[in-house]
Design a protein around this nucleic acid. Structure first.
Lengths: 359, 359
DNA sequence: TTGAAAGCGTTACCAC
DNA sequence: GTGGTAACGCTTTCAA
C-alpha cells in the first residue's frame, strides 16, 4: 500500500525523504520516528539515536502540509500590509521578522495596495496557510473583515482603531504626536502654523489632523489646513500653494515624505528653512535625518510595534489570551528644520520624550 | 467514517468549511466539487452552479496543506535575503511582490542576517513549504548550498555569481558600474580618486573594487584604497581617514550609505562637496537624491530584478526552463555631488546610459 | 517502549 | 458527467 518515495542517491535530484524512508532506514515504525522527532513521550535511547541518525543521513524534513493537516497548525504568521514599498513598511517587517525567527515562525507576506477587495481576498487565501495574521489596513470603513469569525484565524491589527473582534491591536497615538509637534512649533515662536493633511479616509492621518487642531485651539491660534495624500509630490504641491498666497511661518506635514516634498519645493522657491519657515513631519523615517536641514518629526517605534504584534500573534496561537489594545507614544524629535540655532552635530539625536496631551 | 467538520452557524467561530461540507450542501460528490472549483473537465452547468453557490455560502477555502499533499505544489515562493532592513531590500521585495501577486503566488519571507548557517536552516525549513526559492547570499563561500539537489526545489540566485546548479541567476554588472563612475570622476577633471571598499567577503563589493581598479589603471591614475564595510559609519570613518592625511579630490564609495556617511563627515570637517571633493556612491537608493548635495551614483533596477527573479521562479515550477544568467547594467546617475555647475533642479534625473566597458 | 491504523482535506484515477 | 476511493505524509489514539 505504501509507495516508496523516489530517493535517488546518485547525482540525480533527491526528492525529499519521507518519514517512511526514515522509519525503514532506522528499522522502526513511522510512529516512533514521529515521536522521536517531536520530542514526545519516552523513546528508548538506542531507538532515538537510530532514528536521529537515519533522519540526519537522509536529510529528512517533515512535509509541512501533511503536518498541518494533522495538527491544524502551520507555524506561519500571515502579514498583510497596504504596501511593501518604503521605509515605514521595511522597518515594520524587520521588527516582525526579528520576533518571528526568534520563535521559529515563518512569515507569509502579502500586500493589498490599499485596496479593500484585494485585502479581503488575500486574507481569505491565507486562511489555511497561517495560524494567525498581522494586518494593517489604515483606511476607514475597512473594519468589516477585521474579524476572527470571517477570517478563521486570530488576527492582530496595526494602526487601525481596534476594530471588530481582532485579538489585539497596536496603534500609534497620532493625536498626541501631532499635538506635541504643533506645541513645539508654537512655543518656539511660530504663530502661523499650516498643516498638510494625509488622505481623507486614512485613520492615522485624521488623528494627526485632530491633534493639530486641538493644539491650535488650545493655544488660541488659527487653523490653516491644506490637503495632501502622504506622497512627496503632494507635499511639493502644498508648499507651492502655501507660498503663493499668504505665507505661514511654519508647516507641519502629516508625514515625513510630504515634509520632504515641501522642503524641496521651498528650497527651489528660494525660501529658507527654518529661518523663514519652520518645517516638521511625522514618522521619523530614516531619510528624515539625512535631508538638509534634518527634519523635525514625531518618531514612532515602528520595528518595536512589529515585534510586539508578532509576539501577540504567537501568544494567541499558543492559546494565551495576550491580546489587548496597546497604544504607542511617538517621541518628538527636534532637528534643524525647526530650530535655527542648531549646531551642526545634532542631526542624529532622538531626544525629548513626548509631553502629555490628554486623549 | 467521515467526521463532519464543526461548522457552527450561530455567533460562534466558524472553523473553515471543508470540501465535504460543500459536497453535502450541493448534493454532489467531493470529486465533483474539486473538479468544479479547479475548472477541470466538463461539469454540467446546473451542477456547477449548485457547487459554486454552496461554496460561496459556506465561504469555502480549500485547505492548502491538503492540496499541497496531493498536488505537490504550494503556490508559494520562498524568499531568502541577508536582511530585511533598508531601502535596497525593500525595493527588491516590492518587485518580487508585484510579480507574485500578478501570478497569484504567495511569498514566504525569511532573512539570514548574513549568517550562512541560518541561511541553510531557513532554506531547509522552506523545502516543503515552497515550490521555488529566490535567494540572495552575497558572501563568498556560500555556494555549497546553492543547489537544487540540497534544497529540493528550484532556486534562483540574486547577486551571487551564478553559483552551483541554481536554475537562474540575476546579477548586477558591478564591474561596469564602478568603471563608469570612476571614468566619470576622472573625466570631469579629478585626478586623485580614492575608493572606499565594501566588506572583504562580499562579492558585489569586490567586483566594484575591481571596476575601480581597472578604470584607474586604464586612465593611468594611481589607486587609492580605503576599507569600509557598507555601513554609513564606515563611510564616516573613511572620510576622516582620508582628510587626515593627503586629501583626494574625489571619493568613490562602494555603496550609497557609505557615501552618505562620508558626506556628513566631510561637511562636519568643513570640506565642500563637490568643490573640494567630488563624491559618488553605488546603488541609487532613494535617499541618494535627498541628501545635500544629491549623490552621484550607479543606479541598479532593484525592483525590476526582483520581478524578473520571480518570473523565473514561476516559469521554473511551471516546468519551463526559463533559467539563465542575466546581468543588469547599472546606469550612471550624475547629480550635484560630482558636478559643481549643476542647476538646482537636476536632482531627480536618471540620465546617462552606462558606457561600454568590457568585463 | 513500540506498532498498527484511523484520520486530516485534497486530488486524481477508474468505473459507471 | 458523476461518484467511489486510493493515495499524499504526518500525528495520534489504541493495543500490545
Amino acid at each position: 500500500m505504501f509507495r516508496g518515495s523516489s530517493l535517488w542517491c546518485g547525482d540525480e535530484p533527491v526528492k525529499g525523504a519521507t518519514i517512511h524512508d526514515v522509519a525503514r532506514a532506522a528499522d522502526v515504525s513511522v510512529a516512533t520516528v514521529s515521536r522521536t522527532l517531536n520530542g514526545l513521550e519516552t523513546v528508548a535511547q538506542g531507538t532515538r539515536d537510530r532514528v536521529l541518525r537515519a533522519a540526519g543521513e537522509l536529510d529528512y524534513v517533515p512535509h509541512s502540509g501533511a503536518r498541518a493537516l494533522s495538527t491544524r497548525r502551520t507555524d506561519t504568521i500571515g502579514v498583510l500590509l497596504p504596501d511593501l514599498h518604503g521605509e515605514f513598511f521595511s522597518e515594520l517587517i524587520r521588527g516582525i521578522d526579528l520576533a518571528a525567527r526568534a520563535r521559529g515562525l515563518h512569515l507569509l507576506l502579502s500586500s493589498s495596495h490599499g485596496n479593500l477587495a484585494e485585502a479581503e481576498a488575500a486574507l481569505r487565501s491565507m486562511r489555511s496557510r497561517v495560524d494567525s495574521v498581522i494586518a494593517m489596513m489604515p483606511n476607514a470603513g475597512e473594519q468589516p473583515l477585521a474579524s476572527d469569525r470571517h477570517l478563521g484565524v486570530p488576527m492582530v491589527l496595526i494602526g487601525s482603531n481596534g476594530a471588530a473582534d481582532a485579538i489585539g491591536s497596536f496603534t500609534i497615538d497620532n493625536f498626541a504626536g501631532a499635538f506635541a509637534i504643533t506645541k513645539h512649533l508654537v512655543s518656539s515662536g511660530r504663530s502661523r502654523v499650516a498643516f498638510v493633511t494625509g488622505p481623507a479616509d486614512n485613520l492615522e492621518a485624521s488623528e494627526r489632523l485632530r491633534g493639530y487642531r486641538a493644539a491650535m485651539r488650545s493655544f488660541g491660534s488659527t487653523e490653516w489646513i491644506v490637503h495632501g495624500d502622504f506622497t512627496e509630490e503632494s507635499g511639493r504641491r502644498a508648499a507651492a500653494h502655501l507660498t503663493h498666497n499668504d505665507t505661514p511661518d511654519a508647516i507641519f506635514c502629516a508625514n515625513d515624505m510630504m515634509a520632504i516634498g515641501c522642503l524641496e519645493a521651498l528650497r527651489e522657491a528660494g525660501g529658507s528653512v527654518p529661518d523663514d519657515i519652520a518645517l516638521a513631519g511625522f514618522d521619523d523615517v530614516p531619510i528624515a535625518r539625512y535631508v538638509n536641514p534634518p527634519l523635525t518629526t514625531a518618531a514612532v517605534p515602528i520595528a518595536e510595534i512589529g515585534r510586539q504584534a508578532l509576539e501577540c500573534c504567537a501568544d494567541a496561537i499558543g492559546g494565551g489570551d495576550a491580546g489587548g489594545q496597546r497604544s504607542f507614544q511617538p517621541q518628538l524629535v527636534v532637528r534643524a528644520s525647526t530650530s535655527s540655532s542648531s549646531s551642526l552635530r545634532q542631526d542624529h539625536s532622538r531626544p525629548a520624550e513626548l509631553g502629555e496631551t490628554g486623549s
